[in-house]
Nucleic acid binder design. Structure first.
Lengths: 329, 329
DNA sequence: TGAAAATATGAAATGGATTTCATATGTGGA
DNA sequence: TCCACATATGAAATCCATTTCATATTTTCA
């Protein structure tokens, strides 16, 4: 079934059928005829032909660093919620933390496969920016603040400061920090700096060798905590850049006979399900990932509708979720 | 940049450029010319025009019951892994466990928006089957066994039998079962039946009122366990259809002063991260979700390539992951 | 050496819609 | 009553590639 056949059957021109479908001028009489024919035939316009003609795909490319992660799936849930309300669909691209793939996808999506891109970012290189500059479609960056681009990000620095304050208030004297790669500005750099800033302000010194980098996994958190505690057994407060790392840390600490929080207190980031289940419950930072997904979707819709070049930036707040991994508050 | 401009610049016909792009007959000389022009202009063929002409989108629609779940994200990771290797992309559709939405998406994807569909299923109604029968593109069902369709599913029944045996061997006498809705054949029915079958064979009776249904969440697991233990305080073995439910159960049991596994032993399904972190570690069934995603992707690729109408069915095995939630094994 | 097969190329048809252009009619306001 | 404007319609152009058809040239092999 094509629009031509419908036109013939309804005895109108192809243009009239198109107008019926797109709310153009059409008389009631012909509208009825077309309606009837379409109902009878079950005709559905060819998406490809429409896309070719209108240059719109109703698709948003979502580039993800990984797919199998609680925070990511919350983000995607948020994006999907808003976009599907507006008739858009998600084209997923999983880069598995591979920068090359990320660039590949940016390029692939370039040639109007999608109407816009939401890039859930970790690391931004010059190449990223260069490619993004050339993109003829709107991009929204999620999770990182990138100058010159619409971005939704979290107050990682502020949140890190806040939890550090809590640990200080709870009597933390000897700190350890398990962070992420500083190439990841939000998770690695901001969170680390927020913590170090407050420690400094509070006059608490922290050895450079007590500041470590782990991968985004509990296994890595476990290993790093082990190294850290071996060399710095006096540590009584541990700042972990993600819940996964904190979970690994808890595991090691318990194994090595440390009591949490009496001997060592610690915090994480992400408000993950794991953190609610672990013993003791993890005190963590809630970063409303779902909301950030929703906001990113809203912005991309805005950019698509008005074709405005405005750069919008949204910094989302945080909420500290109290568990039992800190000493008395 | 269109193929026309490239053709003009390279002083060949449009067809020759197309042949260059699609490995048709072309002389070295002209190939070089075209190659050079394409390199200079950065020309990329229009996806929409290609799609219109070739009727292929290189897109696979993936219909998910929800997006924010560990098992689902593992499945998607598996699908994505295989499909991206073959140049396909994922078009995501999240139904939020809404049957209507599921049918909508099946219908939406129908008109060659995608080349094939992977339906991660929970509940199958007559309407599902009717719609699927009409689909002009291949469908693979994941997670449920549906007669007449290619499907990848897990040995839910066998796994349920196996863990029930374990609980019996560990001295379980009074059983409780927290299942999922039996409309979900795999998770609700098969797992329940596997358990009940073995209990019966072992001569262990279980009260109908000790067989409950919970939603797919720890909160619901908590609530159901509470109800169950109120009415059946003698229960010493609890079969939970999912890890989430089991996590909720553990929470309630601990709160109510029961020791796990001494007073009550229990198992879950899913081998989730939460289950590894909870105290005591959950004994659970590993269902290789990622593998099932991969297999589903492979099958859809097969169906796409040879256009064979063959129905393929793959039943995946299981592996019991020992935690500490069962009495001595 | 001659016929069949492989290689090479361009013109034109094709896919299926939307949109512009031209034209016609109906309607409201001055 | 006349002009401007909204409404209504179809023919034809357009979007941008792939593919078929026709035709020409080279190779290959008997």
């Amino acid at each position: 079934m094509t629009i031509n056949e419908i036109a013939k059957l309804a005895d109108v021109s192809r243009a009239t059928v198109s107008r019926y479908l797109n709310n153009g001028y059409i008389s009631e009489e012909k509208a009825d005829r077309v309606k009837k024919v379409i109902a009878q035939t079950g005709y559905v316009p060819s998406t490809q032909a429409q896309q070719l003609r209108t240059k719109k795909t109703k698709l948003i490319g979502v580039i993800l660093p990984k797919i199998n992660s609680e925070s990511i799936s919350r983000i995607v849930a948020g994006i999907s919620l808003i976009l599907s309300e507006h008739g858009y669909h998600l084209l997923l691209a999983n880069t598995d933390n591979d920068e090359k793939k990320e660039l590949e996808y940016l390029q692939l999506f370039q040639d109007n496969r999608v109407d816009g891109i939401i890039l859930v970012g970790t690391i931004f290189t010059k190449e990223h920016k260069k490619l993004m500059k050339e993109l003829p479609i709107p991009v929204v960056v999620l999770g990182q603040h990138v100058d010159g681009y619409s971005s939704i990000y979290h107050d990682d620095f502020g949140a890190a400061e806040a939890v550090t304050d809590l640990m200080i208030a709870a009597g933390g004297k000897h700190f350890g920090l398990i962070g992420a790669t500083i190439r990841d500005v939000a998770v690695g750099q901001e969170r680390r700096d927020g913590c170090l800033t407050r420690l400094k302000q509070a006059g608490i010194s922290i050895d450079a060798s007590a500041v470590r980098e782990a991968a985004f996994s509990s296994e890595s958190g476990y290993a790093m905590t082990k190294e850290l505690m071996m060399t710095h057994p006096q540590i009584d407060s541990l700042f972990c850049a993600t819940d996964s790392m904190a979970i690994g840390a808890i595991e090691y600490l318990k194994e090595s006979g440390k009591r949490i929080p009496q001997d060592v207190q610690l915090i994480g980031f992400g408000d993950s399900k794991m953190g609610k289940v672990v013993e003791p419950k993890l005190t963590t930072v809630h970063l409303s990932y779902k909301t950030s997904g929703e906001e990113a979707a809203k912005i991309i819709l805005e950019l698509l509708s008005q074709r405005s070049e405005t750069v919008r930036e949204i910094k989302l707040g945080y909420r500290i979720v109290e568990g039992k991994s800190l000493r008395s508050l």
